[in-house]
């Protein structure tokens, strides 16, 4: 597909940042050979893979990118359903959840907004307990129905909002759907990073120590300030949003990204595990990487949708 000019520039900027990070990592290793930079190396190599694959599929075509996001949903659902408690009798209902992924992304690819927006919250919501009832095991029924539907909402419904950005009508022809996706992904990830950096530098007052002892008000507000500023500058180039609207988008992404992160942290705390998997070397599982996105994607999507579509 033809990548619109601004989206192409944004991709180049991201790749440049990655090249710089790789060089810094290399220099650090050269300068302090006694230190162990293995994890940093793994993290950066994994970023090359993630960004490389994302850009590749975005560059091939809209449908290729939609399939890519569907595959991410598959990996995320699999990871989630593997760490939470499920009953042996739920296997069939879980299988139905997997089947709902190609359907949900088919609605995305065909631009059928009405179906895309109600399929998981209405039809799958009603259907999961039906499949469970047909199996007939009532012990643990309520909990399983809840867990299964929540997992579909987090990993299929939320993530598919990223893909739907690609099929929205073009309002900023210099950026297109790719611009929206890049804006959302970049702001979400950079929010994680800047909340972490601000927290490391000035962190003092903890927000929810029981869930995440590293999350501080200083980190949260510093990250929000950074992202709001950055979003107001970048939004007019990559999205239909004006500067002021871009600021609001930054605030929304920052707040929702924070909550996505701590919600998935709570899940892991509840299960007594540190990472949700080890698919991505240096990062953990796919949910560890997509936690913030699960919250930012629908929030950002509906913000621009209500303003421009």
């Amino acid at each position: 597909m033809d990548i619109p000019q601004n989206a192409f520039i944004a991709m180049l900027v991201v790749l440049t940042v990655l090249v710089i990070a790789t060089i810094i990592q290399f220099l650090l290793k050269l300068k302090n050979p006694e230190n162990d930079y293995h994890e940093l190396y793994q993290r950066i190599m994994s970023w090359w893979w993630i960004i490389g694959l994302l850009f590749l599929f975005l560059a091939i075509s809209t449908n290729a990118a939609i399939i890519f996001f569907a595959f991410l949903s598959f990996l995320a659902l699999k990871e989630f359903i593997s760490i939470v408690e499920t009953r042996q009798t739920d296997r069939n209902a879980v299988f139905w959840l997997y089947l709902s992924i190609p359907l949900q992304y088919y609605w995305v690819a065909s631009g059928w907004y009405g179906m895309f927006i109600i399929f998981i919250p209405v039809y799958i919501f009603l259907l999961i307990p039906v499949r469970m009832v047909l199996k007939g095991e009532t012990e643990g029924f309520i909990k399983s129905a809840g867990v299964l539907h929540w997992s579909a909402m987090l990993t299929i419904f939320s993530i598919s909002h990223v893909a739907y950005l690609l099929v929205l009508p073009e309002k900023n022809t210099l950026a297109g759907g790719v611009g929206l996706v890049l804006f959302l992904l970049f702001m979400t990830q950079f929010n994680d990073v800047s909340q972490y950096v601000w927290g490391k530098l000035f962190g003092k007052h903890k927000i929810i120590p029981k869930v995440s002892p590293n999350k501080t008000w200083q980190g949260f507000l510093g990250g929000m300030f950074t992202i709001t500023l950055l979003a107001s500058i970048v939004a007019p180039h990559l999205t239909p949003l004006s500067q002021i609207e871009g600021m609001v988008a930054g605030i929304l992404i920052s707040i929702s990204g924070f909550f996505g992160d701590v919600v998935i942290s709570s899940v892991k705390r509840d299960l007594n595990i540190k990472d949700s998997g080890n698919l991505i070397p240096g990062h953990g599982g796919i949910l560890d990487r997509m936690d913030s996105l699960i919250y930012t994607a629908p929030i950002f999507f509906h913000y621009i949708y209500s303003l421009y579509y």
Binding site: F74, K78, E79, I81, S82, I83, T86, Q88, R91, N92, V94, F95, Y98, G277
Partner: peptide, 19 residues
């Protein structure tokens, strides 16, 4: 661990699970 969820004895339907 976990393979007994993906494909337990006596079942033909393989359901994806991380193991």
């Amino acid at each position: 661990h976990g393979l007994g969820r993906a494909l337990p004895r006596g079942e033909a339907l393989l359901v994806p699970f991380n193991c």
